[in-house]
Design a protein around this nucleic acid. Structure first.
Lengths: 279, 279
DNA sequence: CCTTGGTTGCGTACGTTGTACTCAATAGCG
DNA sequence: CGCTATTGAGTACAACGTACGCAACCAAGG
């Protein structure tokens, strides 16, 4: 119920929240007071004008429409099909009109990431224990990655986006680990949660890459893969350099059960976290 | 020392290896015998002609040279700087000459992946227990990802490459988990190893994305980041929607220690695997 | 020796991409 | 009714991957 703070004293959760709220308000006040440089890197995610200046014609598009259109194209024909021309065509505007809403294509990518992050439904706070909450978030994230196979590629080429949708996921995970009976400090909580998310992303990346390979070569089953990769693989295996791998290929049974593998690894991680809780 | 096989009997490791070797040889013989379709998807990784046809001038380049040049460009100026024109210029040949060695740009990417996979030094088999072996492989993989920040992006956009360099890493990990005192079946061994690799890839992706963000905005320390992201972040935090996250930002101390976070998660995973071994 | 034919290196050219620049049309304020 | 900030769109350009075709090369066959 209590936690050691930096100066060695203990504070209750209520005290902690009050302290942080006060600090945030002070920071906000300071920011409002100083009116500094135009702070350019600020607009990482493009925003609509909060209060539209009254002059001139109304914009015909919203950022949400652009994001939805881009996601739609990527879902249908892959990330490479998202070109400014095609995106504009889908929105029935001229190509260059898009640049009234986004600074460049990177902005479009940021909008896509935000849109997808908003898709994931978080478990209600306190509706389950930390373990079940983390499991649900992981499952939800994985589902998103599989629904949008281009996501992994986008996340690895686009910088981190500061958006409420993204922060909310992080907060949900941290809050679950911040429950009353848990003894992790903040750094460990973040490390534990980011371990889980890293795992989910890594798995999804690999899984999507495999699907992509199957699609490109027209394989529809694991047997197709074995038939096609065999001529390349068998000579290597036959030389005896990879005995354990050969054992897997010959005797393994869950080879294409991505769901099972994912769950296996996830439970490993949750067990590891549990061990650190002394539970 | 023994393991249940499919038919319920037990076989020693020696018996198993013999059985698999025999099977491989039979497969090889069958392949040689039937001389089937040109099996196009075979050449996933471009290869030099094993026995060069004697007619015509000698090639001036090797695939290794091409791979090294591409890796060099990507290391210096990022993956997008690897264009066919620039790669050719670096190799002092005309642009289109490259297409005598690779079918298309995808091939160049495959060569890069292979080259990087060959960089990693595996622990000698049996030189350490399964846990230490996996830890070393993970560390080595992470080092590669940080040495070549473009790797994560490439792995998430290029299909899996069948190359000895890649298979060797997999074999080393599986062999470590196949030690005498371990009770995992093959499927579990593969799931455990791929859990680790997925984690490493996910972490590296996030870490590289963060570095890239820092670089692009010219931040050189965490304080720079906080100064720049503050105006965007503080209003969100001040509304109280992310209390745990705010706690971390205010009170966390290991915020930029990627090494520590990586090790934390890795030990979690190893603990989880250990738990499945009944150790 | 000369001829032959497959192989290599390279120059040209085309279609597609992101986007800088420019200018006409729009619509609320004075 | 102008005035003026703002939007939508057309044109244009540099850079990209790469299809195509031709010249230079070089061992084998005569």
């Amino acid at each position: 119920m209590t936690e050691r703070s930096a100066d060695g004293a203990t504070e209750s959760r209520e005290q902690r929240d009050r302290r942080i709220r006060a600090l945030m308000e002070r920071w906000t006040a300071e920011r409002d007071g100083d009116d500094r440089e135009p702070r350019e890197p600020n607009d990482q995610l493009p925003r609509e004008q909060p209060s539209r200046p009254p002059r001139g014609p109304r914009p015909t598009l919203t950022l949400d429409q652009i994001a939805a259109a881009a996601v739609g194209i990527a879902d249908a024909d892959g990330l490479d099909a998202v070109t400014m021309r095609r995106l504009a065509a889908r929105l029935d505007v001229a190509t260059m009109s898009l640049y009234r809403y986004v600074k460049n294509k990177e902005d479009v990518y940021a909008l896509m990431l935000d849109a997808v992050a908003r898709e994931i439904t978080l478990p209600a706070p306190g509706s389950a224990g930390w373990r079940e909450t983390l499991r649900r978030i992981a499952t939800e994230m994985r589902a998103g990655q599989l629904r949008h196979p281009w996501l992994a590629r986008l996340q690895s080429s686009t910088a981190f986006v500061i958006a409420p949708s993204v922060l909310a996921v992080l907060e949900a995970g941290l809050a679950a680990l911040d429950a009353a009976d848990i003894t992790l400090d903040v750094d460990e909580m973040v490390a534990a949660f980011s371990t889980m998310t890293a795992y989910v992303q890594g798995r999804a990346t690999a899984e999507v890459a495999q699907r992509e390979t199957y699609r490109r070569f027209g394989w529809s089953s694991d047997d197709d893969m074995r038939a096609a990769a065999g001529p390349q693989l068998v000579p290597l295996l036959a030389r005896g350099d990879y005995p354990t791998l050969a054992h897997y290929i010959v005797d393994g049974s869950n080879q294409d059960d991505a769901e099972w593998s994912f769950a296996f690894g996830l439970e490993c991680i949750l067990d590891g976290i549990a061990a650190r809780l002394g539970l």
